[in-house]
Simulated assay, not measured.
Amino acid sequence: MHPCTFSLFLGVLGILLSPTYASPVRSPRGISSSLYDDLVLYTKYSSAAYQIFCPRPLGNTLVESFSLPNAHAFIARDDSRREIVVSFRGSLSIVDALTDINVFLVPFVSPGIAKPFKVHAGFLLAYNAVAKSVLGTVSSQLAMFPGYAVVVTGHSLGGSIAALAATALKTALPDAPLRLFTFGQPRTGDANFAAFVEDTIGADNIFRDGVPSIIARLLGYEHHGTQYWQFVDPTPFNTLGPTTVKKCVGGEDPTCSDSILSTGINPAHVFYFGQVMVLNPLVCV
């Protein structure tokens, strides 16, 4: 078994053996059922990006898929919801691990965008491997299906790549409605990048369930908003619901996940909104 796959297996096993792998409840406020349903839906899309073969993501049309050493993603079209969905895979290989640890901050330069603020070098390199194709495919789909919205999503490493992709797509296609859903997303860039993400996409169009301690702020990184914190960690025995999710304020809300001691990449990192990441091939049919 590949060492990265084995780590994911251990994470899932930890969840299965722990009925209450939970952080303490703090200031529950809850979210709407419709938003919770969206979080569940795009968690499934993020999980689908891990599948070796995904001919119909969530039963929808597969427009294009990308499988490069440092970038794995697909673009799907949901005609019932009138959406173009771009989903990026998280870490599952040695190359991905090398991408994760390339934490140098570099200017955000990519097809459709060139800005002086700094982002994670490894994440940017991964996104740039597919950026031109992603931008071209999304642009052509929007031309063929006017009025469709764009959703960009991803888990872990894929969440950070998704944040870069969504920002670049919105910059290049400012008239396209766009939302960003990420799960277990590490910090991706500096404070100026975080502010630009919120200004460009709109904080109300960003839905992030993040890893607060990764990558450390002392390296110059800051989270962007808006975090939706499931403050009681779900398990296969207790998937919880909208009353256990808190909408946070800003990128580094001290009353949200930053209020507890983080254990980094832990078993809960592979379980979001009732979905075990990676291990469900049914999200592809």
Rank of each mutant, 00 (worst) to 15 (best):
Y21L: 13
I161Q: 00
Q185A: 13
S160I: 04
P177F: 08
G122E: 02
L39Y: 09
V12Q: 15
L68G: 07
I260T: 14
P57R: 13
I84D: 06
N238G: 02
N238S: 11
V25L: 15
V85E: 05
D258P: 00
H155N: 04
S27W: 03
H224P: 01
T243S: 10
L62E: 10
V63Q: 02
H72Y: 09
A216F: 05
D209E: 10
T153M: 06
I265H: 00
V197W: 05
A121W: 00
S67F: 13
N128P: 05
G30L: 07
Q185V: 13
P57D: 11
T255V: 09
A73H: 08
D38P: 02
H223N: 11
K115R: 15
G136N: 13
P69V: 11
A172E: 05
G147W: 06
K132D: 05
S139K: 11
G184P: 08
R82G: 04
L125R: 12
E198A: 15
S27R: 12
V12A: 14
K115Q: 14
L169C: 06
D258C: 01
H120V: 04
R77M: 14
D233C: 00
A194Y: 08
E83W: 06
F104Q: 12
A203M: 14
P57C: 14
A131Y: 00
Y50T: 13
R217A: 14
V150F: 01
I214Y: 04
D78T: 09
S32F: 11
D37E: 15
A76I: 11
A76G: 13
